[in-house]
Design a protein around this nucleic acid. Structure first.
Lengths: 339, 339
DNA sequence: GACCGCAGCTGTATCGATAAAGAAGCGGTG
DNA sequence: CACCGCTTCTTTATCGATACAGCTGCGGTC
């Protein structure tokens, strides 16, 4: 059978098996009230005829698709690739399919996905928000079960799985201090960036660590990125070295940025960890492979994925349940860059 | 309006606007034959009522969803992330949405996606196949417009956008020879791997280059990976050094493997490019950022994405058109690892 | 023997949109 | 004035599956 015409419908199966459509439906969906001989006969015909259920029709009637949307800033990013892989697995365990969408890390893109998620027939949406303003009215209009992933400050209105932004960065900076660093820089997005929440939270954790270790938080040690990725990190490293900024440790806001810093330091002959110790955030798979391998804050990605999927499915079941917030556990992965 | 009950249908809009459903449908779909005042009135009501079209109903009637599936081995992979980003853009330009699926780089996963693509309502499928046997009968049953991406040997039966596997690797090996390398290793998957076609094709290109440059193809210079990724590459590098294999250049089957080799050489104190020159294949974004930056075969990813999308859409329009095959253009990106 | 309960199956309306054919209004024409 | 062609809008019949009420046959009960 080729494509096109030859679509076998449930009615055809019913006719061929000598039963009603409803009986076929009951067999297909494993519902009780069908005798064994009839069930067998129907399944036989289904196989022979090559019948495949029409999902549009089913969805039109039942209202469920079994597809969850996962909206990430960029599919082309180690961190989100990793996350996606875990979410796909977790969702499969609960009988859901994941469709990945890209928002472009902009509030506009995120609203677009929310608005389109009904068009794409999602039963629920896991949104790895970055540009979103939690107060934006457009968030309310969605009317689709939704979980925020990796951001904070949505607690009141949405289910939310947060990264340990503050705690993680605090531990990272303390880790550097424990290795003997005294002038620790933080390389992060500028405020007003798309990733305001992540940026400010992580900065706050850094400050808390300095305070606790009795180190001064000098303003020039806050290095602002022009672009929050490896390219931006590389340029930042050049500026840090060229401007004569004295520092013996650096906390990077993400592993991607840290990778850029490594590259930028290499460009200028600054050795890691001999001259400068460096720590990142995320623990992407590459961190282990980089030269030198990258110490980093390692949130439990699987835990986050599992929690997110658990929360959406729970909300699909009961749209009225109160929103909850959860922060992922983390460890510090110590590697060559801080040894 | 919250979730749940308050679903506004096209009929409601029609009633509120004092026109028929069909007129609303015509307005929604920008079809001609609606006067300006009526059009405005309908759009007004659509806005006020918060009406959103029910895609299942539309799909049930029209048979089109506007969604293309993109099936890749792993979403958690720099190369496929990059590819996906381009495909998403190209598809958007033609009014299609992309849903990304993961096959797990196994033939089973790939069939699963093909089989499920009707369930997920894809109008067409772009399949980045790796484990698939082109002769497998199950391929025929799909009945969905499909394009193979990155593999070869499907010419007869499917539209196909190929990587310049043979040509690219040949150029890569020649590039090393031109830089003075005399004992060039190739690090690649074992035959019988999931990626047989890629592996054999790239190996063939390597052999052709050696032949052309009058270099001997010694068997021990073929290094087989136990895993075709960075981890496997790292282990391979260790073996290459520890076993006393003499070599002054290496062609890696992918950039991911090359990254692992870089790491593995660093572990053993082998310097790139001073002691060994290294070249990869794919030109993932990381290649520029690695330390040292990685020379690599750079296929035109945008071109591939554009071609793939063009081919599926063409096949959706005309399922009977003959299958065609296209090979992506490429350049050699020269960076530090071969300088 | 009339009646009940129940498992197993059927008939029909319905989900929300769209395609195709048909009606209504209107200026122009012989 | 009957008729035409055109635009604008309406009507009716689906698309394929599912929910629900209803029908049937049959063993059991008083």
């Amino acid at each position: 059978m080729t494509a096109g015409q030859g679509t076998v419908t449930m009615g055809d199966v019913a006719r061929l098996a000598g039963v009603s459509k409803m009986t076929v439906s009951n067999v297909i969906n494993n519902r009780p009230g069908v005798s064994e001989p009839v069930r067998r006969r129907v399944l036989e015909v289904v196989r022979e005829s090559g019948y495949r259920i029409n999902v549009s029709a089913r969805t039109l009637r039942s209202g469920r698709t079994g597809v969850l949307g996962l909206a990430v800033p960029h599919v082309n990013s180690a961190y989100f690739g990793l996350l996606a892989e875990h979410v796909i697995e977790e969702a499969a365990g609960r009988g859901f399919h994941i469709a990945i969408e890209q928002t472009g890390a902009a509030a506009e893109g995120e609203f677009e996905v929310i608005a389109q998620s009904h068009k794409l027939q999602f039963d629920g949406l896991i949104l790895s928000a970055s540009g979103l303003d939690p107060a934006d009215q457009r968030l309310v209009g969605g009317g689709i079960p939704m979980v925020m992933l990796g951001e904070r400050d949505f607690a009141a209105s949405f289910d939310h799985v947060a990264m340990p932004n503050e705690e993680g960065t605090k531990a990272a900076a303390e880790h550097l201090a424990d290795r003997g660093c005294r002038r620790i820089a933080i390389v992060t997005g500028a405020l007003g960036d798309g990733d305001v929440n992540v940026v400010t939270r992580r900065h706050r954790g850094y400050l808390a660590a300095l305070l606790e270790r009795g180190l001064a938080a000098e303003p020039e040690l806050l290095v602002a990125l022009d672009e929050m990725n490896a390219r931006g990190g590389r340029r930042a490293a050049h500026r840090m070295v060229d401007s004569g900024l004295g520092f013996d440790g650096a906390v990077a806001v993400t592993d991607g940025v840290a990778q850029g810093l490594l590259r930028g330091f290499a460009d200028r002959g600054v050795r890691v960890p001999d001259d400068v110790r460096l720590i990142g955030f995320d623990d992407v798979p590459d961190a282990e492979i980089m030269v030198p391998s990258l110490s980093t804050v390692s949130p439990d990605h699987r835990w986050m994925a599992a929690k997110a999927v658990e929360l959406v499915t729970a909300r699909i079941e009961d749209p009225e349940r109160p929103a909850t917030e959860h922060t992922a556990p983390f460890t510090i992965a110590e590697r060559e860059s801080t040894r």
